[in-house]
């Protein structure tokens, strides 16, 4: 079986992140690795760079990882998490400009077919294109 692009879901809310991951697993299936994180370490709303890095590691694939985010800080913290990866892995992780739930389902659907990271990102972003 060929490797597929992994999906990371980053929300301010752990419940939203988990619910989105559940939707991806139920709708697309288990052939794509999905990891999620949400909330700050105190259990409140927020995002954490270290939790995002953990999620990237959990969803890691040699084909790369696509990250779906919700609001502002989720995006900037995800970008920071990517920058903190080893240089060799940095280019294999992208943050998608797409709505978190729809983007995650579409990205995972594309990933399940064995598509490249660039294709997965493009499909997720189709929704924000027009």
């Amino acid at each position: 079986m060929t490797d597929t692009v992994g999906i990371v879901i980053v929300s301010h809310s752990k419940d939203i992140a988990k619910g989105t991951a559940d939707m991806v697993r139920q709708m697309v299936g288990s052939e794509v690795k999905v990891a999620f994180c949400g909330g700050n370490p105190d259990g409140g709303l927020g995002t954490s760079v270290s939790l995002i890095i953990d999620a990237i590691n959990n969803a890691w694939s040699t084909k790369g990882v696509a990250i779906l985010v919700d609001l502002g800080g989720a995006e900037t913290n995800s970008e920071m998490a990517v920058e903190m990866l080893e240089p060799a892995r940095r280019d294999l992780v992208v943050v998608c400009n797409a709505p978190i739930v729809e983007g995650a389902v579409m990205a995972a659907t594309e990933a399940a077919g064995g598509s490249s990271l660039a294709q997965v990102k493009a499909v997720a972003e189709e929704l924000s294109a027009d």
Binding site: M27, V28, G29, V105, T109, A112, G113, G114
Partner: peptide
């Protein structure tokens, strides 16, 4: 949504 995902995955 769900049927659409299934159809797309099969087509691919």
């Amino acid at each position: 949504a769900r049927p659409a995902v299934k159809l797309t995955k099969l087509a691919k």
